[in-house]
Simulated scan of single mutants.
Amino acid sequence: MKKIILVCMMMSAGVNTMAQQVKNIPLWPGNAPGETVKAPMKTSPDNKGNVLRIAEVTDPFISVYPAPAGSTQDAAVIVCPGGGYNILALDLEGTEIAKWFNSLGYTAFVLHYRVPQKQAGALQDIQRAIRLVRSKAADYHINPEKVGVLGFSAGGSLSARASTLYDEQQYTPVDAADQQSAKPAFALLIYPAYLDKGPDRKLTPELKVTAATPPMFLFATADDPYGNSALVMAGALRDAKVPVELHFYNKGGHGYGLRKGNPAAEAWPALAQAWLKQFDKR
């Protein structure tokens, strides 16, 4: 009996240690641009599909998931959950993804951007997050030139916007961190949405793809109602001669994260991991 109790205590201590490692960093020293209050985020009562949904964010922040001790990876990823710009699917497309990156040796940051329906604010938040992470690169033993983004669904839209609008100042600089570049080093778009709002379902006009756009990894499926977004983005990147890797599977639908039981969810992580090797420490 004593042995069993000891093991349980050790496991509990390990969990607590992991929880203590996660740190929340506010994006803005005062109110976020255009916001008049700094209120705690609100959770939605809807937990369908065993998904934690955040219904309102007015005080955006990043949650830091440091790489495990001894990791040699110096790239980092800012993870953008989806949710139609209405909510954030926080665990399915945020915290679970950050822990997966940790398992690969990467430092990850989960972006709690403003919702609901604050697309302009969300773009300000991701620009600020990229700059803030770069300014703190030494603290997390990462290369400031290897800070990328990964987004799901609306988070994929946000990541695409960050990757194509990085040279458009979205807010008045607030401190020294804003001297950093807002351009992601790379982007991974997993079942992205809203990228085909142009005429005849072509690329959304807001997205300015040029030869300077960062390299991208895209994954979607044919039975995803938003699947065309990945196709048009891949075509635009190819035309601009930007390095792009597209995987388009037959089945999987939308909104699966990396949870088991969905063929697409079980496929994309290994493909993304292989693609990320080009950013390994040299």
Rank of each mutant, 00 (worst) to 15 (best):
A177S: 15
E206N: 12
R201L: 14
K260R: 13
F217Y: 08
Q179N: 15
Q170A: 15
A222L: 09
H254R: 00
E168S: 13
P173Y: 07
R259H: 12
A265I: 05
A270C: 03
K277Q: 14
P184L: 02
A240L: 08
M233F: 08
L231H: 02
H254S: 06
L276R: 00
G227E: 04
D200V: 07
G252A: 04
K241Q: 14
A222S: 12
S157D: 13
A212E: 14
V232R: 01
D196M: 09
G257C: 01
T164W: 05
K260C: 04
A236V: 06
V232Q: 00
S157W: 01
N228C: 08
S163D: 08
T164H: 09
D280Q: 12
N228V: 11
T210Q: 07
A177H: 14
S157K: 03
K197R: 12
P269H: 06
V232Y: 01
Y226T: 12
Q170S: 14
V232S: 00
Y256M: 14
D239H: 09
A265D: 02
A193M: 05
S229K: 01
L188W: 06
K241T: 11
A272Q: 02
L158R: 07
L203H: 00
A177M: 11
K277M: 08
A222R: 13
G252K: 04
L237F: 04
R161N: 13
A162I: 04
G253A: 05
L203V: 01
L246I: 09
D175E: 06
F186A: 07
A234T: 08
A185T: 13
D178V: 01
F279S: 11
Y171S: 09
S163A: 14
L271I: 10
E266F: 09
D239W: 10
Q273D: 13
I190T: 08
E266Q: 12
G261E: 04
D196S: 12
A162Y: 04
S159E: 09
A236N: 06
A182C: 03
D239Y: 10
D200N: 14
P184F: 10
K208R: 15
D178F: 02
T221R: 06
P205A: 01
H254N: 02
V174A: 12
P192Y: 00
I190H: 01
D280S: 13
N250M: 15
A211W: 12
L207F: 06
Q170V: 12
A160H: 00
L237R: 02
S159A: 15
A211H: 11
D178K: 06
R161W: 06
E168Q: 15
P184N: 05
A265E: 00
R238F: 13
E168F: 11
A230R: 01
L276C: 00
E206Y: 09
E266W: 10
